[in-house]
Design a protein around this nucleic acid. Structure first.
Length: 706
DNA sequence: CTAGGGTTAG
């Protein structure tokens, strides 16, 4: 009989047909009355998710034992239908079949998956009533359930109730503390487990723990765990290796990640490949990511949604646009375009291409049937990043009016648009909303708030937001934004003070910190200090200077009139100066009246960036200053021939919910006479200030640090 | 027929 069933189950028919045939055969031969036979068919139905068939068979069975009931409970919990599972659980008790350890562990697994803490407590009560709390299977399920609900104390109590906990119980408990990011407790449990000779440690003990080691400051810990893993001979445990690849990558040690990857040889599974792929993508090692992706194709490694989200996130920047588009084709071919995560990855890829229009991303987004929070936020971020600021604000209010969840990402993005719009009232309204939704202390939201208030000229409020951050030692971006805010307000000394506080409090510095601090020096004329910062970046702070740092330093020297020093700096740069550096230098040449050098640099710039209006406009102004009208006319003509247009600068001010825009010499406003009179008054006042010495100026402006 | 563990997009 067993042989018959086995051969039927192995037939070449697809599984549902196979099971139906098996069932018919069993009925025909009268085997169906055998509980063992029925249970086996029942189990197959529920394993493949054919629950209506299972249910029907269950109803038709003339005899049911606890295995039959438990099978039904498993079937329903494993597809998330907890209510149905619960009905069977209750039915089981009513029918006189005793619920047992199997029933509880299955039910609890479903509860853990759904993180239904209250339900879990109720079942825990029943477990105690039935006397199962010391059963290692039930107990471990309880630990897991509380762990998944992030109730680690309850998990710990449940763990202590188990009479003889095994490694699964330990692992479930460790995973619980990992889930709430309690590194210390997780490590303490791991070492307690290690001291317990009866416990065999495996992937389940180490892999979850490694997911916590995701920051460069923890890289030594990662290495130590790696050493321990080798010592225990667990280097072939695939889950550990996969987690290790991710840890090393998140700690910034991609090469170590690659070493683990290579060390696996033929033991690699799909998660291994995906993890390595994502590691390369995260570190902008696009070529390596593509090589790996192609190797996967060549070696006939199956690909899945993770593979595509991984490789799609490697496609940033102009030169990868063509690859990104090809991958989009592949995604369509594989039928993955409607998978939310893949579509989200496509959207975020498209929004950062230099041709950054929102048309493509928006149509992708609109055709996506199941949108999640990331989908909405990606579009919002896209609008914000591509300077569609008004649309970003509109989109944000649409989200709110449609009752779509608005989270910290959304707040951060829309506040950035408020900064770009420099509309204080709107920014304040959104600030109020952020407070109401308790996102105001989030690092990213706070930074956007600081930026918004700085841009709107209310540096005091920016400072207030900054002061309210709970864990200042870990929020580099908030410090950077605050330093930059003061720098742009001309309070360079405050920026420098913040910088030393940052160092004293061991806040992590990054390349943006130095851009901010160099800007501060340049806006305050602190030449020596600025150069000192630039020169110490690499040797002292271990941060490689980037193009923007050199640009800032050139600006610093240019503003101080040290154009030759700026030239020397550019010549000594280890990188080839990019257009930004050259444009800054050009500005410095003009300001210092270095016509020859300006002309040279300008000619070079006109060659490499003929479409940018900056160089033409600057040359034109310079020739005006020098009254060289012919040369000015030549520049204007060149612009016209090449179709380059000057982008006029606009200013705007928000008064009582209305935004007034104007540009230079604008007389279109009906109140323009009054406005110009006021400007004259202000000018006079400024001249009066100018006649005093600068100490008095500083004190009038409230800059007491001078 | 029971329990734990590794990869994704903003």
């Amino acid at each position: 009989m067993k042989a018959l069933l086995a051969s039927l189950l192995e037939s070449s028919l697809n599984s549902l047909q196979k099971l139906c045939v098996t069932q018919c055969y069993a009925i025909k031969c009268g085997y169906i009355a055998d509980v063992y036979v029925s249970n086996r068919i029942l189990d197959s139905y529920s394993k493949f998710g054919f629950l209506s068939h299972a249910h029907k068979l269950f109803d038709e069975m003339c005899q049911r034992d606890s295995v039959s009931w438990n099978t039904m409970i498993s079937g329903y919990t494993s597809c998330g239908k907890l209510e149905d599972a619960w009905c069977f659980f209750k039915g089981m008790r009513r029918s006189g079949s005793n619920v047992d350890g199997y029933s509880f562990s299955r039910l609890l697994k479903g509860i853990a998956f759904g993180k239904m803490f209250d339900f879990g407590q109720l079942v825990h009560g029943l477990v105690i009533k039935g006397g199962y709390e010391c059963n290692v299977y039930v107990g471990s399920s309880l630990v897991d359930m509380y762990a998944k609900c992030e109730r680690v104390e309850d998990a710990y109590e449940a763990f202590q109730d188990i009479s003889e906990p095994n490694s699964v119980s330990w692992n479930a408990l460790i995973a619980g503390f990992v889930q709430v990011r309690d590194i210390e407790m997780a490590f303490w449990l791991l070492s307690s487990m290690e001291m317990n000779d009866a416990m065999i440690m495996d992937g389940g003990s180490f892999a979850p723990l490694l997911t916590l080691l995701d920051d460069p400051v923890l890289c030594n810990l990662t290495k130590q765990v790696h050493a321990k893993v080798l010592k225990l001979g667990l280097e072939d445990e695939i889950t550990i290796c996969n987690a290790m690849i991710n840890s090393y990558a998140d700690c910034g040690l991609v090469l170590d990640a690659k070493r683990v990857f290579d060390g696996l040889g033929g033991l690699k599974d799909l998660i291994t490949w995906n993890s390595m792929l994502t590691a390369f993508s995260k570190h902008e090692l696009k070529e390596s990511a593509f090589e790996l992706f192609i190797e996967m194709q060549r070696s006939w490694i199956e690909t899945d949604v993770y593979t595509y989200t991984g490789i799609l996130s490697a496609c940033s920047g102009e030169e990868y646009q063509i690859f990104g588009e090809s991958l989009h084709g592949l995604v369509i071919k594989k039928g993955l375009e409607q998978v939310t995560s893949v579509s989200n990855a496509l959207v975020s890829m498209y929004i950062q291409f230099p041709t950054g229009a929102m048309k493509g991303p928006l149509s992708l987004f609109e055709s996506l049937k199941s949108k999640d929070l990331v989908s909405w936020n990606s579009i919002l971020t896209g609008l914000s990043q591509n300077s569609f600021s008004e649309d970003a604000v509109k989109f944000f209010s649409y989200l709110r009016s449609s009752n779509i969840e608005v989270d910290d990402y959304a707040f951060s993005a829309v506040l950035r648009s408020c900064s770009d719009l420099a509309t204080l009232q709107l920014g304040q309204q959104i600030h109020a909303l952020a407070i109401k939704s308790s996102f105001e202390s989030n690092e990213f939201v706070t930074s956007s708030l600081i930026l918004m208030y700085s841009k709107c000229g209310v540096i005091k409020n920016a400072r207030k937001c900054f002061e309210q951050i709970s864990s200042k030692h870990s929020s580099t971006i908030a410090w950077n934004t605050m330093i930059l805010g003061y720098a742009q307000h001309g309070s360079g000394q405050v920026s420098l003070d913040l910088f030393s506080q940052m160092c004293n409090q061991n806040v992590k510095l990054d390349h943006v910190t130095f851009t901010a601090i160099l800007t501060a020096c340049s806006h305050t004329g602190l030449v020596e200090e600025g150069l000192e910062f630039l020169n110490s970046m690499e040797p002292v702070y271990k941060i490689q200077p980037r193009m923007e740092h050199y640009a800032a330093a050139v600006d610093l020297l240019g503003r101080a009139g040290l154009v030759m020093k700026a030239k020397e700096l550019i010549e000594s740069m280890p990188l080839n100066p990019d257009p930004m550096v050259l444009k800054t230098f050009l500005g410095a040449c003009r300001a210092c009246g270095e016509i020859e050098m300006a002309t040279q640099v300008a000619n070079h710039l006109l060659e490499i960036e003929p479409e940018d209006h900056f160089t033409y406009v600057l040359l034109s102004h310079m020739y005006s200053d020098l009254k060289k009208w012919e040369k000015k006319a030549r520049v204007k003509k060149m612009m016209k021939e090449r179709g380059v247009k000057k982008v006029p600068g606009w200013s705007w001010i928000e008064i009582k919910n209305k935004v007034y825009t104007f540009n230079a010499e604008d007389r279109s406003n009906p109140l323009c006479q009054e406005i110009y009179l006021m400007i004259e008054d202000l000018n006079q006042e400024m001249q009066w200030l100018d006649s005093d010495n600068w100490f008095d100026q500083a004190s009038l402006l409230g800059l007491n640090h001078f």
